[in-house]
């Protein structure tokens, strides 16, 4: 089953420390530009819209599948995807806890945390 997959640990990075700290408390954060108010992904310390300050803001965890592909030649197979969040940004993720053959672009999905090899929670998605 796909949920037996071992997720590689995210490399440590000063810019993702706050995100993963929030994730450990079950909170899914995305970037927001202070100057323009726009949400963005992936989170950064500097706004990718105006190079001004940026913050992390909690997101709903609701989205739709933008695109996907199941890696059939890797054991165990897994489904990589881009999911467009309700807040706007599209993020790279994995679709989990489902039959890959049942998944469709445009389908509603919701956040589900999985745990990487080093114990870090990582944001995956599953059909609603």
């Amino acid at each position: 089953m796909m949920n037996e997959r071992i997720f590689p640990a995210p490399p440590e990075d000063p810019e993702s420390a706050a995100f993963y700290a929030a994730a450990k408390k079950g909170r899914f954060m995305i970037g927001r530009c202070v100057g323009t108010g726009q949400y963005f992904w992936y989170p950064r310390a500097i706004s990718p819209f105006d190079f001004g300050p940026a913050t992390l803001e909690q997101a709903s965890g609701s989205g739709v599948i933008y695109s996907l592909s199941t890696m059939r030649r890797i054991d165990p197979p897994y489904t990589i995807a881009y999911v467009t969040l309700k807040e706007g940004p599209t993020i790279m993720t994995n679709l989990v806890d489902c039959d890959p053959d049942s998944l469709l672009i445009g389908q509603d999905v919701k956040l589900v945390w999985k745990v990487a090899s080093d114990g870090t929670p990582i944001p995956c998605f599953t059909p609603v």
Binding site: F7, P8, A9, P10, P11, E12, D13, E15, S16, W41, Y42, P43, R44, Y66, S67, L68, S69, M71, I74, Y78, I80, A81, Y82, I91, M92, T93, N94, I105, G106, A116, T120, I122
Partner: peptide
Amino acid sequence: IANVPDATWEAPFGPVTPGIYAMCAARHMY
């Protein structure tokens, strides 16, 4: 590779080359 800014957000999801191109194909088909 150390310090690649996107790696901390994407490495856990197994973004191997064929999968990344396949998502372009899937979206084009859709």
